[in-house]
Amino acid sequence: MTERLVTLSDVCVRFDGPPVVDHINLTLNRGDIVTIIGPNGAGKTTLIKSVLGIQRITSGTIWRKPEARIGYVPQHLQLQPTLPLSVRRFLMLTGESADTCRQALAQTGVDHLFEASVHHLSGGEKQRVLLARALARSPDLLVLDEPAQGVDINGQAALYDLIRALRDRLNCGVIMISHDLHLVMAATDRVICLNQHVCCSGYPADISTDPAFIETFGQTVAESLAVYHHHHNHRHDLHGDVVESQPAEGCSHHGVH
C-alpha cells in the first residue's frame, strides 16, 4: 500500500534565459528516500523549492497530499548574531511543546544542546538541530538541502544513517539533495541525476552504469564511487550554460527516464 505525497508533472522553472528546471516528472511516496544529485547550477535547489511551494513554477503542475506536513532543512542557516536565540527557543518557534522539541533533539542525538545558543553550534551540530526542528513538526515529508554540509566525513555517514533510521521510525517520505555521492548511494532508495532535466533516475546500483550518469559525472566517478572528486565531462561557462566536451547531443537526447 503506497501513499503518494507529492507528484510533479511536467514542471518547468525559468528565470531569465533557459529553463533552470526543465520538464520534471517526479512522484514521491510515503517511506521513499529520493536523492537528487547533479552538478552545480543543475537546478537542484530550485526543484526542491518548487516541491516545498516556495518557488513559483513557470509551467506544469505540482500535487501535494492535502494537509501534508513538511519538515524542511535549508541549505544555509545564516543566523544574525544580533538576534539572541537558544536552541530551545528556535525549536519552540515551530509551535510545538518543550517536551516534543527535546525529544526531537534526542532523536538526532543532540539533546544536550537544548539550552545552548544557536550562535555557538558547530557545522554538524547545526545540521542536527535543523533536522530536529524539522522532526519536531512530525512531518509527512522531509525535505533536506545538502544535509551533510559542513559535517566531517565520519559525521556524514552517521547523518545519512540517521536520516534512514528516521524514515523507518516516522514512515515519512524523504527528498534530499546531496553531493556526497558515495555515501548517498548506500543511503537512498532512488537517485535522480539532475542537470536542468532528469538525466537519469533509478536505483543506486543501476544508475552508476547508466550512460547518462557517466556522461554527467564522468567515467571515473561512475567506476569508483568511493573516490568521488566531482569531475564532470562538461563545465559551465560564465553564463551558467553547459559547455560540452562530448558530442553536441550531450545529455539532452536521453530525455526523461
Partner: peptide, 9 residues
Amino acid sequence: IHEELARVE
C-alpha cells in the same frame, strides 16, 4: 530568523 523556513511552515 529564516524567511524560507517561515514560508514552508
